[in-house]
C-alpha cells in the first residue's frame, strides 16, 4: 500500500495506562477499521479514535504522535511493520517483536524489547530496566534482532538474553548482562555494579573500563580479534555512533566468565 502512513495523534495524556498491543498487526486493516479497534485502559476499553486523531491510509506504517509514557505494549509481537513513536513510550515497547523497525524519539519504560525475536528497536532517549530481558518468570530474554539506545539504560539490561545485539550509546545500570545466555551487549558509556553477574555465554563489549571487573572473571589478556571488524561492519546501516569508523576497534582486553556460572562468556574492554 502507498500513501501517507497511518498516523495516530494522542489527543491528551490518558488518566491511566493504555495497552496498545492491538495496534501491532495492522496491514490487513483499513484506517477506518483501525479507528474502531478497542484498547484497554485500566479496567475499561475505549476506541482508538477516542484516544487518538486518526489520519493516513498506509497501515503497514504507523506513526504515533504526541506519545507519552503511559502507552504500553507498542509494537508487541509486531511483524514486518514500521512504527515510529514521536515522544515517549511506556513499558513493554516492542515486546516479542518478530521483524520490522520500531523507533521511539523519546524515552522508553521498563522491559523495552523484552523477548524480542527480530527486527530493529531504536530508542533515541533513555530506556528503563530489563531492556531486552525476559518477563518475570520466563527463562529466555531477547532471542534475536537488534536494539539501539542512544541514551542510557536502566538496570538488568539484557537479563537472560539469548541472542541478538543490544547497543547502548550512553551508560548502563547495575547488573548489566546479568544471567545472559548468549548474544552481544555493547555499551559506550559507563556500566554499574555487578556487571555480567551469572553470565553464561555471550559478549559484553565496553568502550570504557568498568568500575571493577567481578572477581569471578578471569583476565585473558589483551588481543587483536579478527571478528571485531566484521562485527562492526554489521552495524554500518544504523543511524548511530556505533556505525562511525572512529567507534570501531579490534584490540581488546578480554575477561572470561562468569566462572560462578557456566563461565563461557566474555567482557571485552577496548584496549
Amino acid at each position: 500500500m502507498t500513501g501517507n502512513p497511518l498516523t495516530l495523534t494522542l489527543k491528551s495524556e490518558p488518566p491511566r495506562r493504555v495497552d496498545l498491543s492491538p495496534l501491532s498487526g495492522l496491514p490487513h486493516l483499513t484506517a477506518g477499521e483501525v479507528a474502531a479497534l478497542k484498547l484497554w485502559m485500566g479496567k475499561r476499553t475505549l476506541r482508538v479514535d477516542e484516544l487518538f486523531e486518526v489520519s493516513g491510509e498506509d497501515t503497514s506504517r504507523l506513526v504515533i504522535k504526541n506519545s507519552c509514557a503511559k502507552l504500553d505494549y507498542i509494537g508487541k509481537d509486531a511483524d514486518a511493520v514500521e512504527i515510529t513513536v514521536e515522544g515517549d513510550a511506556g513499558a513493554y515497547l516492542g515486546r516479542g517483536m518478530k521483524s520490522g523497525h520500531l523507533r521511539v524519539t523519546g524515552n522508553a519504560g521498563l522491559f523495552a524489547a523484552c523477548e524480542l525475536r527480530g527486527g530493529l528497536v531504536q530508542i533515541d532517549g533513555n530506556a528503563g530496566d530489563f531492556l531486552g530481558g525476559a518477563l518475570p518468570g520466563n527463562k529466555r530474554g531477547m532471542r534475536g534482532g537488534r536494539v539501539l539506545v542512544k541514551g542510557n539504560v536502566g538496570a538488568r539490561c539484557g537479563d537472560e538474553m539469548r541472542r541478538g545485539i543490544i547497543l547502548v550509546e550512553g551508560d548502563a545500570g547495575d547488573y548489566c548482562a546479568s544471567r545472559m545466555i548468549a548474544g552481544t551487549i555493547a555499551v559506550m558509556g559507563q556500566t554499574g555494579a555487578y556487571l555480567g553477574y551469572a553470565l553464561r555465554r555471550g559478549t559484553v563489549m565496553l568502550w570504557q573500563s568498568p568500575q571493577s571487573i567481578p572477581p569471578t572473571y578471569g583476565d585473558c589478556g589483551t588481543h587483536t580479534l579478527a571478528f571485531l571488524p566484521l562485527w562492526f561492519s554489521g552495524l554500518k546501516d544504523l543511524d548511530s555512533r556505533f556505525a562511525e569508523p572512529d567507534s570501531a576497534f579490534n584490540r581488546v582486553r578480554k575477561y572470561g566468565g562468569d566462572m560462578a556460572s557456566t563461565g563461557r562468556g566474555e567482557i571485552l574492554v577496548r584496549a
Binding site: 541472542r163 559478549t203 563461557r264
Partner: peptide, 10 residues
C-alpha cells in the same frame, strides 16, 4: 572444546 563462541553478523 566448549570455548568456541558464535556470532550472528548480518
Amino acid at each position: 572444546d566448549g570455548f568456541q563462541i558464535s556470532k550472528v553478523i548480518g
